[in-house]
Amino acid sequence: VSVELPAPSSWKKLFYPNKVGSVKKTEVVFVAPTGEEISNRKQLEQYLKSHPGNPAIAEFDWTTSG
Rank of each mutant, 00 (worst) to 15 (best):
T63E: 09
P6L: 07
T63N: 10
E36M: 05
K25M: 11
T63G: 12
E37R: 15
W11E: 01
Y47A: 00
V31P: 00
P52T: 06
S2N: 08
K49Q: 12
V20C: 13
N54R: 03
P17D: 08
A56V: 08
L44S: 00
K12R: 15
G66H: 10
P55N: 04
R41G: 08
E36G: 02
T64L: 12
V29S: 05
A56Y: 06
K12T: 09
I38R: 00
A7T: 04
N54V: 04
P17F: 15
Q43A: 10
E27S: 15
P8K: 05
E37F: 15
A58G: 12
V20W: 13
W11G: 00
G53C: 06
N40K: 04
S39H: 13
I38E: 00
T34V: 00
E4I: 08
Y16G: 04
A32G: 02
G66W: 09
L5K: 05
A7F: 06
E36A: 05
V1K: 10
A7P: 14
P6T: 08
V20Y: 11
P52H: 05
S65W: 09
W62H: 01
F60S: 01
S2R: 12
V31G: 01
V20M: 11
P6H: 08
N40V: 03
E27P: 12
R41C: 10
Y16W: 08
P8W: 04
K19E: 10
K25C: 14
Y47N: 00
K12L: 08
F30N: 00
V3G: 06
T64K: 07
L44W: 01
T63H: 08
G35I: 00
V28I: 13
S2W: 14
I57N: 04
P55R: 03
T64D: 08
E4G: 08
P8Q: 04
K12A: 06
S2Y: 15
E4R: 08
Y47C: 01
P33D: 01
V1I: 12
N54D: 03
A32P: 03
N54K: 03
P6R: 09
F15L: 11
P8S: 04
P52I: 04
L5V: 06
K19Q: 13
K24V: 13
I57L: 12
E37C: 14
L5S: 05
Q46F: 11
Q46C: 08
A32S: 11
K24H: 15
F60C: 02
S39K: 14
S10V: 05
L48K: 01
N18A: 12
I57F: 13
L44R: 00
E37K: 13
K24F: 14
P33Y: 02
G35Q: 02
S10R: 15
K49V: 09
V3A: 06
N18P: 10
S65N: 13
A58C: 10
G21L: 07
V3I: 14
E27F: 15
N40L: 04
L5A: 06
P33V: 02
D61G: 04
Q46G: 08
K24G: 15
Y47F: 05
P8R: 04
D61R: 06
S39N: 10
S50G: 08
